[in-house]
C-alpha cells in the first residue's frame, strides 16, 4: 500500500488521491453515527421490553444469519486481497477478486431475501397482517420494525457497494492501466465495503443472538 506521502506529486485536477482516502474515512464516520443512532434506538427498545424482544429474536433464523456473516467476512477477505493486488499493479487479478467480492455480496442479499420471504410467509412483516400468537404481540411487532429497518438499511448500503465493486471490477478488466490512473478508487471501495461488513458484524449478534437459544 503506497503511503499518502508517495502519492504527493499528483496532477492537481484529479483531487489529490490521499484526500479521497481521508474523505472516505470521514464519510464512514458519518455512516457509523447513522447506524449507531439506529442501534441505540434498538437497544433502548430492548431495555424497555426485554421479555418481548427475547421471544421475538428466537423467531429469526440464526443459522441463516451466521451463514450471512461468514459470507460477508469472506467477501471482505477477497476485497482486502484485491486492494493488495491493485497496489502491486496486477489488474487482471484485482478485477477477478473485485467481481468475486461483489458476487459474494449478491449471495448475501439472496440469503437475506430468502429470510425475508420466510418471515413474510409467517406474517412477521410488521404491517397490518402481522400476527403473533404469544404475549405482547405489539412489542414483538416493534422488534420486527427495528429488525427490518436495520437489516433493510444495511442491505441498501450493501447494494451500493455491490454496484461500486462490480463497476470497478469491469473497469479494471477492460483497461489494465485503470488502477494506475485512479489508484485510489479500489482503495476507497475497499474501505466502504469493509465498513458495511463491520455494520453487519454488530447487527448479527444484536438481532439474532442476544435472545440466547
Amino acid at each position: 500500500m503506497k503511503t499518502s506521502a508517495e502519492r504527493e506529486g499528483q496532477e492537481p485536477d484529479i483531487p489529490n488521491d490521499s484526500n479521497i482516502n481521508l474523505g472516505i474515512w470521514i464519510f464512514l464516520l458519518t455512516e457509523a453515527m447513522l447506524f449507531g443512532a439506529l442501534i441505540l434506538c434498538y437497544s433502548v427498545m430492548r431495555i424497555l421490553h426485554p421479555a418481548a424482544f427475547n421471544t421475538a429474536s428466537h423467531l429469526l433464523d440464526w443459522k441463516a444469519g451466521t451463514l450471512n456473516t461468514a459470507i460477508l467476512l469472506f467477501s471482505s477477505f477477497c476485497m482486502a486481497v484485491a486492494v493488495r493486488a491493485s497496489g502491486k499493479g496486477k489488474s487482471k487479478g484485482t478485477s477477478v477478486l473485485l467481481l468475486v467480492s461483489a458476487s459474494l455480496g449478491i449471495l448475501f442479499l439472496a440469503v437475506k431475501g430468502m429470510e425475508y420471504h420466510s418471515e413474510w410467509l409467517k406474517y412477521l412483516f410488521p404491517n397490518d397482517e402481522f400476527t403473533f400468537a404469544g404475549p405482547d404481540s405489539a412489542f414483538v411487532k416493534l422488534f420486527f420494525n427495528a429488525y427490518f429497518i436495520l437489516t433493510g438499511l444495511h442491505a441498501i448500503h450493501l447494494t451500493f457497494g455491490i454496484l461500486w465493486l462490480s463497476g470497478l471490477g469491469i473497469a479494471s478488466w477492460v483497461s489494465p492501466q485503470f488502477h494506475r490512473r485512479y489508484p485510489n478508487a479500489i482503495d476507497c471501495a475497499g474501505l466502504y465495503w469493509h465498513f458495511v461488513d463491520i455494520v453487519w458484524v454488530f447487527l448479527f449478534p444484536l438481532l439474532y443472538l442476544v435472545g440466547g437459544s
Binding site: 464516520l29 458519518t30 455512516e31 453515527m33 447513522l34 449507531g36 443512532a37 439506529l38 429497518i149 438499511l153
Partner: peptide, 14 residues
C-alpha cells in the same frame, strides 16, 4: 457537522 448531522438523518428517517 460530520458527527451530529447523521443522527438528525436517523431521527428524520424514523
Amino acid at each position: 457537522f460530520i458527527l451530529a448531522t447523521p443522527v438528525l438523518s436517523t431521527v428524520l428517517i424514523l
